[in-house]
């Protein structure tokens, strides 16, 4: 968002020897413990555009990477309550205004019998928000990504653990980033082309 408002300095574009634009540098680590420690080092080095890729959510990695909270719970709560409200409104309008019918001599807008459907619609809207919000906040679906070209990366979904620091990171520097990853205990390091 800030990028839209203030013109940021043009980033340095790095190229490989073959002339391809560099997306970032990825390093493999052997175990969840090692990658957690490495993530702490990368975080402490002040990087901002980087990520840890692992076949499962590593316990405590959010702290090791220095994440802030995700807004998905708030989105679910707001849209869920909207759904419940709409559900109640629908029933109130249909039963009390559009098509009033005497059922068991109850007042047309007696709210008690509206509770089950109000509840169900609240749940329904929340569920759609949970899945839709997860995809939206994660910018998915995204069928293309530079990392997918790397054979090593395709094994993350099996058992590998990889840190990738993007070239767009202001702190990215081919030599220093490599040194940082090496000192963090990477077992292999390679450049990722855009």
């Amino acid at each position: 968002m800030m990028g839209l408002l203030t013109r940021s300095a043009p980033r340095t574009v790095y190229k490989t020897e073959a002339g391809e634009v560099v997306y970032g540098m990825m390093a493999e680590f052997a175990t969840p413990a090692e990658i957690s420690h490495a993530a702490e080092k990368v975080r402490d080095a002040g990087h901002s555009r980087w990520d840890v890729y692992a076949p499962f959510p590593i316990h405590g990695i959010d702290e090791a990477m220095g994440f802030k909270h995700t807004p998905i719970a708030l989105a679910c709560a707001l849209i869920g309550l909207t759904g419940a409200g709409l559900g109640f409104l629908l029933q109130w309008w249909v039963t009390g205004q559009a098509y009033p019918m005497v059922v068991q001599g109850k007042p047309f807008t007696a709210w008690e019998s509206f509770i089950p459907i109000t509840f169900e619609l609240g749940i329904l809207f929340t569920a759609f928000t949970a899945l839709g919000g997860m995809l939206a906040f994660n910018k998915l679906p995204m069928f293309y990504h530079p990392l997918f070209k790397k054979e090593r990366f395709l094994r993350v979904s099996d058992d590998r653990m990889i840190i990738c620091i993007e070239a767009a990171d202001p702190k990215f520097d081919p030599t220093k980033t490599r040194e940082l990853l090496e000192s963090a205990g990477a077992t292999s390091i390679e450049l990722v082309e855009e």
Partner: peptide, 9 residues
């Protein structure tokens, strides 16, 4: 793509 940022959300 098994990103930890994605995993958190």
């Amino acid at each position: 793509r098994f990103s930890s940022r994605h995993w958190m959300t």
